[in-house]
Design a protein around this nucleic acid. Structure first.
Lengths: 260, 260
DNA sequence: CAGTGGTCTAGACCACTGG
DNA sequence: CAGTGGTCTAGACCACTGC
């Protein structure tokens, strides 16, 4: 039996032309229902979700349909399957997916072979969103935002300088001390403390000279070419939740990307 | 009935430790057989492969098993499914996947909105592989390679300078004239003329100052920061088949990447 | 051993394409 | 209309995990 009696649902394309309603397969609907439970925190990062058989009974569909729904969630790294154990809500605290969002790797050795990054918070304060920050984060100009600056060092060498903007509302209670005292991936802190999980991100990369004091923090000569990386990170609902402007030294590291 | 009577096959990990032989599911074996037919040219880029039912009969497995094999090939962009029409061998000549390997996009507008890139071959000659080129391409030092240099311009502005190295053997007969007279994606030329299909690539990205005459070809000031993009492209068998060192201007364009 | 995810099958039906 | 890929089901069995 279908979880939703009609298997038709309107699509975004309807706004552009009067097309016939898009067909929405059952497994997509199930995927949506599971997604809702993930968002609501019914199953928390690191925990197991119900077994495929249980979910099939819950939604009154076959195991195969649940399976296909979970397949898509797994391919988007929202859940992780472990044969014989169960399916688990993905978390940024996992050791093996630490470097999913940090593409800068050492020229020799494997990602993380230099040991954990040293994180130093340079600044963290509450501010008003400028017009372009507001536009990117889906806020209004002047809305309250949290702004932080930090330096990441590898083997004692400052390598990454990042300016980070967060909408103040979802991160109520986040302080400079909390950031400075937390040793681990920032996104792991976000999901445990604020129930904000970063799911996807877009990066725009440029080559820019080191200026405006950034050369001092990264200890390079003024004008040294740096990799400029602007990242917008999105949550479950595909809402922009973080803007990050990073400057990477690429004398001993490089940005690694796979095309396929 | 199984296409291969035993469903056990040795895995690469066997070389590292004496583990039990890895289980190789039927659909993986079918995937391998289809891959073989793709490599051998039984089905050429742009053509349709047999229907799922036909392949199921050919390999004596169920349609579902063939389906799962094709699913994986489709997710790797080796084939493209079109409902109601069939499954087709992917090709770089497709308009919609032109930009799968070129991640540099204009700051405003959509990829390709500036019209097609103007391609100018600056140089193309036969040479001997240096030690590091040979290592990267899996050749021996001194083996014959083709070396080309070209400039891509958008809206009349030189934006990309690329040095390209190819192993001479698989590209026998490729001349500067052939390259210069071909207007279209280089990888499309490779697959139609030399049966070499680029399937996957790795890129290492750095910020570097414009030097060594590159500033002249890209018409920027000496020392201007450029995006340095080293690409190694791989064919079906995961053999490195091309080394490309690109220098991108990022004053009007940026390298776009999606993390998920 | 029971419980989980992973594979495979056979069959039914649906949505899309083109003649 | 026939042929294609896409969805859904029910059931069987396999591989892996942990008790």
């Amino acid at each position: 039996m279908a979880a939703i009696s009609t298997s038709f649902a309107s699509s975004p394309a309807d706004e552009l032309a009067n097309t016939t309603p898009a067909f929405s397969p059952l497994y997509q609907q199930i995927k949506g229902l599971i997604l809702q439970s993930l968002q609501s925190g019914e199953w928390k990062p690191g925990e197991a979700i119900p077994s495929e058989m249980d979910l099939a009974a819950r939604y009154r569909v076959s195991q195969g349909t649940v399976r296909k729904a979970i397949d898509e969630l797994a391919s988007g790294h929202l859940v992780v399957r472990r044969q014989g154990k169960g399916t688990f809500v993905a978390t940024h605290a996992e050791q093996n997916i630490q470097f999913r969002f940090l593409k800068l790797v050492p020229d020799s050795g494997t990602p993380g072979s230099e040991g954990p990054a040293q994180r130093e918070i340079i600044d963290c304060r509450r501010a008003r969103a400028s017009a372009d920050i507001a536009r990117i984060l889906g806020l209004r100009s002047g809305d309250s935002v949290l702004q932080a600056r930090r330096v990441l060092s590898f083997a004692g060498t400052p390598t990454i300088l990042e300016d980070i903007w967060l909408p103040a509302a979802p991160f109520k209670g986040l302080t400079a001390e909390r950031l400075a005292n937390y040793h681990g991936p920032m996104y792991a802190l976000f999901e445990t403390e604020f129930n904000v999980r970063m799911v996807r991100a877009e990066e725009k990369i440029r080559a820019e000279p080191a200026t405006d004091g950034r050369e001092l923090l990264l200890k390079v000569a003024h004008g040294t070419p740096l990799l400029s990386v602007e990242r917008i990170a999105y949550t479950y609902q595909d809402l922009p939740m973080e803007l990050r402007r990073g400057y990477y030294r690429t004398d001993t590291h490089h940005y690694r990307n796979t095309l396929n």
